[in-house]
Design a protein around this nucleic acid. Sequence first.
DNA 1: TAGTTTTCGTACAGCGTGTTCGATTTTGAA
DNA 2: TTCAAAATCGAACACGCTGTACGAAAACTA
Lengths: 184, 184
Amino acid sequence: MKLDDNQKVDRRVQRTRKQLHDALIELIAEKGYESITVQNIIDRANFGRSTFYAHFQDKDDLLMSGMNELIHRLMDGIEQAGERDGPLFSAEPLFQQAAKQPQLYKAIFGRRGVELVVHEFKQHLASHIQEQLEARETSEIPADVFSIYLAGALINLLQWWVDEKMPHPAEKMGQLFKTMAFQA
Amino acid sequence: MKLDDNQKVDRRVQRTRKQLHDALIELIAEKGYESITVQNIIDRANFGRSTFYAHFQDKDDLLMSGMNELIHRLMDGIEQAGERDGPLFSAEPLFQQAAKQPQLYKAIFGRRGVELVVHEFKQHLASHIQEQLEARETSEIPADVFSIYLAGALINLLQWWVDEKMPHPAEKMGQLFKTMAFQA
DNA sequence: TAGTTTTCGTACAGCGTGTTCGATTTTGAA
DNA sequence: TTCAAAATCGAACACGCTGTACGAAAACTA
């Protein structure tokens, strides 16, 4: 439903954007997002300075133009798992996805990762959890508080997991989270 | 046990350091830590460039030379409450402290806050929780996983709480956290 | 007061930013 | 195949921040 883009946009533009994105991901994995400069990116991708600014406003712009898609993919996985499994929601798809591309997910969610993306994702996650909570019997705990609590715990767990080189299998992480969160 | 410092260090040094610290805190509250430059700090504090570098290596150095004390104060509060209350640990002292200096704690722990300090504190917190867990009966959940989970959840809750201008009293936040974490 | 320490101010080289502009190359469509 | 439009190149520029250096002036300690 988005394929129009690929067919209408100038090939040069497609190539340039992809290469800039790739360079950024590479650099994030190597030295963390914060310390990357636009200069680094264009050096790595081998483009002229003006070309970069013809496409993106700055580093953050380049980053976000790619990460929104990733965030929505993750949320879709979690939401679909929720429909299947019945209970509030399942964290396992998140760990599964990360296990498939450890390098990428460490670059984004690990220490030295990208605060901007992590925060954005955390927001989506908290919203989803809150919806699920409100659709159930009311507990003594306010839904907004509980959803923030769970989202923070999960993101942090993921962060630790990718930094520690995934010491447990994704499946187990999903189970552990469920146990800790809901005592079940 | 640290009072020697105040009596031996040159008054000018004391003044300079304090004023630089104050300027930094002010600026954090105004525009967030990330975007602050050394230039901003010395402009605000009205010192020469070389004076700054005579005391601190860079922005992070200035920050950390003040924050370590704050971190330890917070941890002491939490640890002492643990001794009194018996159970694993209490989060309430944390919220109480923050309630006393909302502006400062929002500047540090809120969104736009200081990743460096938050991370450092989270580490201490997780270590403490892990010790407490290991001193008790073993549960089915690995202590390292559970401690990361709880520390992340708590820090995130604090972050949300200060950003939302403390919508619940500190006491209630402590209770809510206890309920969510231990179902008790 | 005398001697030490700190601060001041200025200067400097280095690096990254974001913009501009004309020349060159690539593209897509007629 | 041709040609106009679009994208890239690359060089240059002004700006701001960094971290260092050094001598002169000021503040402090004893």
